[in-house]
C-alpha cells in the first residue's frame, strides 16, 4: 500500500483553499491550470509506460480535478476516515487520470507515477484499492462502479452519515446492463447521497457510441429511472461545480458531462484511434506545448 505524501497534501490543501476563496473566473482559471498540469503529467506517464488510455484520461480530467479540488470532503492523509466522501472511478481503464489526480492531492508521492505499469508497481493498468490509497474499489471490467456505489450510498444512509458518494462512469460502459439494475435501485431507494457523473465523450473503443449501440436520449433514460439530471459542459469547471453543489432533491443525481475524448490535444480530440494508442515522444512534446498555452 502506498502512503500519503505530506508535502503534496499540503499543496493540495492550499490550492483547494485558494480555489474556494477565489472569484468565479479565477476559480475557473485555477481549476483549468490544475487539470492541464495533470494532463501533461498523464501524457508523460503514458509515454514512459508505453501504455494507457490517453483519450479517456484527457476527457475525464476536468471532472476529476473539479471533484478532488473543489468538492470531495476527503483528507489524503487519512484515506480511511470513516465519513469521507466516496469516489469511485467506474471507467477504471482511465486509471492514469485517477493516479495523476490522487498524486496531486498527496494520497501518494508524485514520484510513484514513474512506476505506472512497471513490474510489481502499485499502479496497475486498472486501479487497486488494496495498493493505492484513495481508490475505494477495484474497477476495470465495465459496469461495476455504479452497483458498488449504490451499496456505499445505502451504507451511508444506514450509518446516518452525511458522506456523499460520487461515481464517474464512461458513456460506453452504460451499454452494460448492470448499470441499469443499479440505476433502478438508486431511483427506487431515493439515494439522494449518490451522484453519478457520465463522461459523455461519445466515443467507445472502436467507434461512436451512437453508431455502436445508441445511448441517447441519456438524460431521459436517467430521469425515467428516478434520477435528477444535470446536463453540462464537462470541461467547464464552474458548470461542473454548480451541478455538484446544486440543491438536491430526494433523488439520486446524474450529471451528464459532455466532453471531448483527447481534450486539449488538437490531434487527439474526438478521434477514435486515441482510445489507447500511445503517443510518440515527439507527439507528447507537442501535446504538452499545446496544453501549456
Amino acid at each position: 500500500m502506498l502512503v500519503a505524501d505530506p508535502r503534496s497534501a499540503a499543496a493540495w490543501r492550499r490550492l483547494r483553499q485558494e480555489i474556494a476563496d477565489a472569484a468565479p473566473e479565477r476559480r475557473r482559471e485555477l481549476l483549468r491550470e490544475r487539470a492541464d498540469r495533470s494532463r501533461a503529467t498523464d501524457l508523460r506517464m503514458i509515454g514512459r509506460a508505453g501504455l494507457g488510455h490517453v483519450g479517456g484520461d484527457l476527457s475525464v480530467l476536468d471532472i476529476l480535478t473539479t471533484l478532488f479540488f473543489g468538492v470531495l470532503r476527503i483528507d489524503p492523509e487519512k484515506p480511511d476516515w470513516t465519513d469521507r466522501d466516496r469516489f469511485v472511478l467506474s471507467k477504471g481503464h482511465t486509471a492514469g487520470a485517477l493516479y495523476t489526480t490522487l498524486a496531486a492531492c498527496g494520497f501518494f508521492a508524485p514520484a510513484e507515477l514513474d512506476t505506472f505499469a512497471a513490474p510489481l508497481s502499485a499502479l496497475n493498468g486498472h486501479p487497486n484499492r488494496v495498493k493505492v490509497p484513495g481508490v475505494e474499489t477495484n474497477t476495470g471490467p465495465l459496469g461495476h462502479g455504479l452497483p458498488v456505489s449504490v451499496g456505499m450510498a445505502v451504507a451511508g444512509r444506514l450509518a446516518g452519515s452525511a458522506r456523499h458518494v460520487y461515481v464517474v462512469l464512461g458513456d460506453g460502459e452504460l451499454q452494460e446492463g448492470s448499470n441499469w439494475e443499479a440505476a433502478m435501485t438508486a431511483g427506487h431507494r431515493r439515494l439522494a447521497n449518490l451522484t453519478a457523473v457520465v463522461d459523455r465523450n461519445r466515443l467507445q473503443q472502436g467507434a461512436r457510441t451512437e453508431e455502436t449501440n445508441a445511448l441517447d436520449p441519456l438524460d431521459d433514460k436517467f430521469r425515467a429511472f428516478g434520477w435528477d439530471v444535470h446536463v453540462v459542459d464537462g470541461h467547464d469547471h464552474l458548470a461542473l461545480l454548480d451541478a455538484f453543489t446544486a440543491p438536491r432533491s430526494e433523488r439520486p443525481t446524474c450529471v451528464i458531462a459532455h466532453t471531448t475524448k483527447g481534450r486539449g490535444v488538437s490531434f487527439m480530440e474526438d478521434r477514435v484511434e486515441w482510445h489507447h494508442k500511445v503517443p510518440s515522444p515527439a507527439q507528447i512534446d507537442s501535446a504538452i506545448v499545446e496544453l501549456a498555452r
Binding site: 470513516t82 452497483p147 449504490v150 451499496g151 456505499m152 445505502v154 451504507a155 439494475e181
Partner: peptide
C-alpha cells in the same frame, strides 16, 4: 426491515451493492 436490502431480480447489482456495503464497514 431497514437492514434487509432487496434489490429485486438483479444479481449483478446485488453483489455490487453487497461489496459497497462491505467496503463501508457493514457485514453483508
Amino acid at each position: 426491515p431497514t437492514r434487509m436490502i432487496n434489490v429485486g431480480i438483479a444479481e449483478q447489482d446485488m453483489v455490487g451493492v453487497g461489496a459497497g456495503l462491505a467496503l463501508s464497514g457493514y457485514i453483508p
